[in-house]
Design a protein around this nucleic acid. Structure first.
Lengths: 206, 206
DNA sequence: CCATTTATGAAATGATCGTTACATAAATAG
DNA sequence: CTATTTATGTAACGATCATTTCATAAATGG
């Protein structure tokens, strides 16, 4: 190892962390190359040599986000030993991660590329796929709750997962609008109050 | 009336509707002047003469949205004769308006300017204020439910309003990701299942 | 008919966009 | 040492950005 030519003068991972934070704060389209190079402390040729392009850099920033904050948030559903606990942990970790001081608020994956612009279809569909995958993973965890007897057979786990994912996506916007951790936890607890009514088979009403 | 100079050759309202749809689809920053002028069928000088600037045009587009779709959605809370019916009507109208064929999905006010970029603070804070105002209006309607005896005294109407607004904001993202009307209605009904538990004073738990 | 006012289309403005050429610097291989 | 390889900083690239200039067109007022 230890390549042949002149060694890189910056820390690649550290620069990627900075790029992630900038994209997270300003969005893909709202971030300019000047934002990136000045924020990462490197020149444009170094950025292109190390990351390929602005779009490739964004992909790697998303991958880093998914592997860190995203992993903490969505990993909570596999840590809990009940389906309810999975949703609770997922939403509570969301409230935490969406509101840390010194970090952009909300979720990079949810807030990025919500609009269809000219050359965005690729990135946009990749992010849509990630969000769908997360929903499917939650539904799969809930389905295990049927197997264990925690949830009654016939529970619509897709509906359940979609509802809680929708709440979590709304929490991204609430965080962007200034909601603090306690407020988001309150939203999470409110959503969890629907758990009982939602996990009885066809029992309706207000 | 009927001004002095050469008459305008396009319909101002009709052009504004087109501008609204373009901004709604592509966002403020994702929309270029070429997008606007070609979509509206007018030249740039005509746009500037009629609307002032891209930013001013966006403001007028938002105002139009608020006065039309926004009015249908948020007006539902004043049409219902119960607090529950207000929330129900608001969410069901949301599911309808967010998913109409031929129209951009989700909400123009919610999806626009979620990121802080260079010259966006003004627009962004205006939209944040609109979202806050909507939440406050819903809370005020819920507070009337306490007066009428529908809701127990001490009901935290701010918490209740914030929860349902969060769900509705999540529905914007779900709509952008392709959810259809029936799916969003299902999300709405799921959220409404929390109504009972949320409107009892301090009665906790799963 | 002429002066004034407003609107339009074409073209240009300077600024900024993402990206790259190029000369130079700093490392290793022989 | 020289040759090769990779990284860096400066400065440019063409494209596109929002906005404006300008000449011309189409209306009204006198």
């Amino acid at each position: 190892m230890a390549g042949r030519g002149r060694p890189r003068e910056f820390d690649r991972n550290q620069a990627l962390v900075r790029a992630m934070e900038i994209f997270w704060e300003k969005g893909f389209e709202g971030t300019s190359m000047v934002d990136l190079t000045s924020g990462m402390g490197i020149g444009a040729p170094s950025l292109y040599a190390a990351f390929g392009s602005k779009e490739e850099l964004f992909r790697q920033a998303v991958a880093l986000y998914v592997a860190t904050d995203g992993s903490d948030i969505w990993g909570a559903i596999s840590k809990a030993d009940t389906a309810y606990g999975a949703v609770e942990g997922f939403l509570m970790e969301t409230a935490n991660k969406f509101t840390r001081a010194g970090k952009p608020s909300g979720c990079l994956v949810v807030l990025s590329a919500l609009h269809s612009t000219d050359g965005n279809e690729a990135l946009r569909s990749e992010l849509v796929a990630k969000r769908r995958k997360n929903t499917a993973d939650l539904a799969a965890r809930l389905a295990k709750g049927i197997e264990t007897g925690e949830l009654p057979p016939g529970t619509d786990v897709d509906r359940l997962a979609r509802f809680y994912v929708t709440v979590q996506q709304g929490m991204s916007i609430q965080a962007r609008d200034g909601a603090d951790r306690a407020t988001l936890e309150e939203v999470a607890r409110s959503a969890l109050k629907a758990w009982g009514p939602l996990t009885m088979v066809s029992q309706g009403g207000q």
